[in-house]
Design a protein around this nucleic acid. Structure first.
Lengths: 222, 222
DNA sequence: GCCGAACTTTAGATTCCCCTAAACTTCCTT
DNA sequence: AAGGAAGTTTAGGGGAATCTAAAGTTCGGC
């Protein structure tokens, strides 16, 4: 059984992966808030266990086994988040940290039981897809708010769980998955986005807008 | 936040405690499956943090803070066990190990939410009382099966979760909290006990019988 | 009161895992 | 091809938790 730290490396590797390119040491170090050297060291270790294929100076990629392990962690994380939010009524800004700890202790059996208890959900409370037992992710066709042209009416699909305070703010403004909004303006010079929320307007800094993924609104009324 | 190991020491200290007497190094070592010297070392550490009062060669006792921390772990453990059994439908012989891992990652908030979800239960699935938030335990007046005179009709109150295989066996025989049985015989030379189960008789070795706590049956029919 | 058995502590190592700082190498851009 | 940025290695540290071996303490029985 991999240690929590190893699981976190695998998860980060999975989430930072882009097709055709290894994940760089620096990128990983940034995500995991550790120094580059620690990452190098760990990548060697992971490479030794066959979870990661690692070419010095070329970055690292998950092997099939590594990918499987990573999606298993992700699955545990997201099912736990949903359970904590939907059934335990913990607030959105708290579930991430709690799930982050529990995901390393929860067995597959337990998580499968939660999955059943919630009738096999497909999205976590942030709108992120929950991998199935085989590690398959149902992709959702969404784009970050910063990519949307002004005037478009969209539905929030995914709100990243970056910093708890940011989440708290977004929730307080009603910006949660499912919410429909219209993009009023986009300020190209700094990437911020202004939204029309009912009769109110709200300005979002680029940093926030980038973490909000939307899809065109095809529904009827608000 | 105490490490899992520290929490396990505190829990063991609490469970082995007898009024007026410190818990001995050996006893702890036996329970935690480590060497005596390791226990001494840890006891000193815990003594330094004010959780344990420790006098060399005299054993150790929990301080009020230590006791509070220990019952908090116990509360998390038992609520988790009940949740895993009652709501997740994990079998009795699996819940202990799972709870043992989760108890060190679960926050009070989460456990309180489970508590609410199950409508504030007072007993875990083994029949052990669940401490309240202040660490109070509602005692239950029960005696081990080995203390019961032949002929007595009793209700199982608590079935200790010692070894999973033992539990599996007891469950398969229907010996779970709430079950009513009659003590048929007691073999004083080895401490084993024979039970009358409906029309069947079942012999239990002392080791097993000691872990089964019962109270006189005051109910009506079977 | 002494002695030995049972128990406990001390001392010193080890393992695991993770970390940082700083020196060093490679790569890429100019 | 030089120089700086990016990446890697070396060297070293630390804490947590464990172990073995040996020395010390307690205590009951003779």
């Amino acid at each position: 059984m991999p240690s929590p730290t190893v699981e976190n490396y695998l998860k980060a590797l999975f989430q930072l992966a882009v097709p055709e390119r290894g994940v760089s040491t620096r990128e990983l170090a940034g995500r995991l808030l550790v120094k580059d050297a620690s990452v190098t060291h760990m990548l060697k270790r992971l490479s030794g266990t066959g979870m990661v294929s690692y070419e010095p100076y070329r970055g690292a990629t998950l092997t099939p086994e590594g990918r499987q392990a990573a999606t298993a962690v992700l699955r545990r994380h997201r099912i736990l988040e949903l359970f904590l939010h939907r059934m335990c009524r913990l607030s959105l800004d708290k579930v991430h940290a709690e799930a982050e700890r529990l995901e390393h202790a929860a067995s597959e059996d337990f998580v499968d039981a939660l999955d059943r208890l919630m009738d096999f959900p497909t999205l976590d409370p942030h709108g992120d897809p929950i991998p199935d037992r085989e590690g398959r992710l149902r992709g959702i066709d969404s784009r970050p708010l910063t990519d949307i042209p002004p005037g478009a009416r969209v539905v929030l699909v995914r709100v990243e769980d970056a910093r708890p305070e940011a989440l708290t703010y977004l929730v307080s403004e009603g910006l949660v998955p499912g919410r429909k909004v219209t993009v009023a303006r986009r300020l190209d010079f700094d990437g911020s986005v202004e939204l029309q929320l009912g009769r109110r307007r709200l300005m979002l800094a680029r940093e926030l807008a980038e973490g909000i993924h939307v899809t065109p609104d095809e529904g009827s009324a608000e």
